[in-house]
Design a protein around this nucleic acid. Sequence first.
DNA 1: ATGGGTGCAAATGCTTTGCAAGTAC
DNA 2: GTACTTGCAAAGCATTTGCACCCAT
Lengths: 149, 149
Amino acid sequence: MSSACDDFRKFLHARRLKYTGEREAILQTVEQFQRPFEVEELLLELRRLNLRVSRATVYRTLRHLVGAGLVNQLFFGAGKQSYYDFLGGGRGHNYVVDVETGMILPFTSPELTALCERIAKRLGYHVVGHRFQILGRRKEPSGPAPTEK
Amino acid sequence: MSSACDDFRKFLHARRLKYTGEREAILQTVEQFQRPFEVEELLLELRRLNLRVSRATVYRTLRHLVGAGLVNQLFFGAGKQSYYDFLGGGRGHNYVVDVETGMILPFTSPELTALCERIAKRLGYHVVGHRFQILGRRKEPSGPAPTEK
DNA sequence: ATGGGTGCAAATGCTTTGCAAGTAC
DNA sequence: GTACTTGCAAAGCATTTGCACCCAT
């Protein structure tokens, strides 16, 4: 069993919540994603794998996974779906968002962590977490873009 | 007239949009806020000043102000109201969010700007903008908290 | 046995939109 | 005169919730 499953089990047990088949199915499917995903995508993947879980349960479980610190939730606007990102492989809470394609590229930055601490300290706060998105546009590999018309 | 008004006028004119009384009223009221605010607060303030503007027009105008770069929009989750922040006085796009009270504290950080550039460059992107929130908990000024109970 | 979990459908809450009448340019 | 705007109410959309039944512990 994955360590994430174990962590989740412990998290649930500590608050007298139950480790159900639905919750296990969701976590295992979430773990497969190699990139941030939307609820709709997760539902499709669950159905593809013949795992029957309702939309409501997916939302409820994602909330627990976020609470457990196993998954990060990204906001892109009111009325827009949240993205969720499994925090495996040392992944942090930092993303480059390609403003042209919408692609979301996670990255890690120890400098950023240090910067958070420094700023929070200056303002009299303890760091509990952070959200960081760089909005960017892909650089042309070289030379001007293909001739416009 | 404030420079922001002027900027907005130019922005609108450049795209053949109109500078109406409603838009002016909204911008001037937005400018008064010394901190990030919700649409609901803005509406209340407009009514207090006897400026009649509909909710729909407030939303439509805020969208233009964000597009013009005069106002920043902060997301806190689907189904949660956006906050808006007038970008005056060198204010950037960085905030400390008090996880206990919900208070939103803007701050500036030249280091962060530099860090964005460095990271984006490394990944092959041009920086178009960024969103940064530090989630924090207020430090006790000193000693343990006042006796519980 | 029991307290939490699930699916369904309805509800919620922020934001957007269609439309008819008004107005900046 | 011609678009663009406005206010209103209705629609839209992601997410949450009430409820009756189910199940992990």
